[in-house]
Amino acid sequence: MAAEFEQLIKDHGGRILAIARRYADTDAVDDLYQEILVQLWRSIDSFRGDAKPETWIYRIGFNTAMTSVRKQIRLREGKAILNNQSRSEESLGGRCQAEILSEFMDSLADIDSSIMMMYLDGLKGQEISSILGVKINTVQVRINRLKKMFSDRYLEVE
C-alpha cells in the first residue's frame, strides 16, 4: 500500500500542489500541501474502489482545503509560479494565458474556482458532482456560467 501511495503522489504531486496554491496564502502553501498528503494517506482505503486518481485527489484535496484550514484559507495572493512559468507563452492582448487563468481564478469564489479547476483538468460533470455532493445539472449550469463569464471578460479581437 505504501508503494502504491508513493507512486500516486509522484504522479499527482503537481495536482495536489496546484490545489494547495489555490486555497492557501503563499506562506501557508507548504502546510496545506502537507495536510492534504496526510489526509490522502489516511483515506487511501477509500481510493481503492474509486475510478480515477484525479477524482480521489480533488475530493480529498478540496475537503481538506475548505474544511480543515479555516484559519489560513483565502486571501489568495499572486500566483507567482504560474505567472512566471509561461511568460514566453502565446500572449493575448499582451498577457499570457497563465496570467489570465490566474486572474480569472482569483476573481472567483472558492466553489466556482474548484469547479473550474476540475473542468480544466478534464473531469466530467458526473465526477465533479460526486466530489462536491451537488446535482450534475447544478454543475453543468455553473460551468456554462463560468464559460460565459470568461468570454464576457476576455473577449478580444486579435
Binding site: I9, G13, G14, L17, S86, A98, L120, D121, K147, V157
Partner: peptide, 22 residues
C-alpha cells in the same frame, strides 16, 4: 475570441509542475 477551454492546456501544465518531493 478566447474561451475558457483554451486554458485547459495551461492548467494541465500547472498540475504537471511539481517542485516538491513528498
Amino acid at each position: 475570441m478566447m474561451e475558457l477551454d483554451d486554458l485547459k492546456t495551461t492548467w494541465k501544465k500547472e498540475v504537471k509542475m511539481t517542485t516538491k518531493i513528498a
